[in-house]
């Protein structure tokens, strides 16, 4: 039985705009197990990045947590992330939970050498011995297949995107974190660089045994790296389950739609069925299912009643939020021509 590492319970977050509110997360509950690798998958605006920063309570100032908690379990103690004072949180961040935001490889201080990035980070978490810090840094840089001496004395602009991504990973592991959160770790990288980062993440995870949470819009990356997948849509988790189950038998029509709309390199089909329409406006609270407008399986019950994330009958730990979910969803989606059924 897997032990829980992070428990997200009924989390809702809203952003306050000039004229309207955006309900970015709506009653999200999700358990993350110790040592697993979980992918948060969804399109832009589905709330996956908001959930990512919630783990370390770094939500922007115009946001408000309207319900729910996030509990982080470390040394069999439960830490309530939203109730922890900032001074404690600052110690927690980077030492226990590391978050690498999207594009963080462009966030190095341009006038500091890589060496000083390592030293600064370690100093602010109470390390004193410079040699010790640099030895650890050297080991980690070698671990990500970089020439440690050259990189340590380089400025960020002297390194390529792939190299900076790898430096960032080793900087992230400097304080032996328990949880590593990566937001779009391979977007904007080339195919071969992306492949290197994927292989590296697999190796590092094996060696350091951290819990990996990664946020991506790329289903293939989830297929490659994740043990479990949480599919998000319009601020909600709509399907959660084992990676093999999710890809082989998705229960939610949105998950099935994402799968059928991803082009494949091998296999017969050179056709994809796309999901019609576009994601909904998040400035309203949904009465019914947020996917209703785009869903081929919809019926009247979906208009007024919001489906709850519940376990499917056939499989333990596979959760879905849909009134019409079944193990045949993928077949339905493949057979039905979405564009012709919905106008």
């Amino acid at each position: 039985m897997a032990t829980k590492h992070i428990i997200v319970d009924d989390l809702s977050v809203e952003y306050l705009g000039a004229t309207k509110k955006i309900y970015a997360l709506q009653h999200v509950s999700l358990d993350i197990n110790r040592g697993e690798s979980i992918a948060l998958v969804g399109e832009s605006g589905c709330g996956k990045s908001t959930l990512g920063v919630s783990f370390i309570n770094l939500l922007p100032l115009n946001s408000r947590i309207t319900s729910g908690t996030i509990k982080f379990i470390s040394n069999s103690k439960e830490i309530d992330i939203f109730k922890t004072p900032t001074s404690e949180l600052q110690k927690l961040r980077w030492s226990k939970i590391v978050m690498m935001a999207q594009g963080a490889l462009n966030a190095f201080n341009p006038v500091m050498r890589i060496r000083d990035h390592f030293i600064d980070t370690a100093y602010s978490h109470g390390w004193k011995n410079k040699t010790e810090i640099l030895n650890k840094a050297r080991y980690l840089l070698k671990r990500v297949h970089l020439d440690s001496e050259r990189v340590l004395s380089s400025f960020p602009h002297e390194l390529s995107g792939g190299m900076r991504q790898r430096v960032l990973l080793s900087l992230g592991l400097l304080l032996n974190p328990e949880v590593v959160i990566l937001d779009e770790p391979t977007t904007a990288l080339d195919i071969l660089t992306q492949r290197n980062i994927i292989e590296l993440l697999k190796e590092l995870k094996k060696e350091f045994n951290f819990t990996l949470i990664f946020i991506t819009h790329d289903l293939s990356l989830a297929a490659e790296l994740a043990d479990r997948v949480a599919v998000m849509y319009a601020g909600k988790a709509v399907e959660v389950g084992d990676v093999y189950d999710i890809f082989a038998t998705p229960y939610h029509p949105y998950t099935a739609g994402l799968i059928t709309s991803t082009p494949k390199l091998r296999g017969e089909s050179t056709e994809v069925t796309s999901i019609p329409g576009s994601p909904p406006n998040l400035s309203e609270i949904f009465k019914g299912c947020p996917f209703y407008e785009r869903c081929p399986l919809r019926s009247n019950v979906c208009i007024n009643s919001q489906p709850k994330l519940t376990a499917v009958e056939e499989k333990d730990g596979h959760l879905v939020a849909c009134h019409h979910a079944s193990k045949n969803t993928l077949e339905h989606i493949k057979q039905g021509d979405w564009l012709s059924t919905i106008q």
């Binding site: 992306q194 492949r195 293939s220 297929a223 994740a226 093999y244 799968i259 991803t262 494949k264 091998r266």
Partner: peptide, 10 residues
């Protein structure tokens, strides 16, 4: 190097 959208294949 291309990752594919199927864990068994990729």
């Amino acid at each position: 190097a291309v990752p594919e959208p199927d864990p068994a294949v990729t």
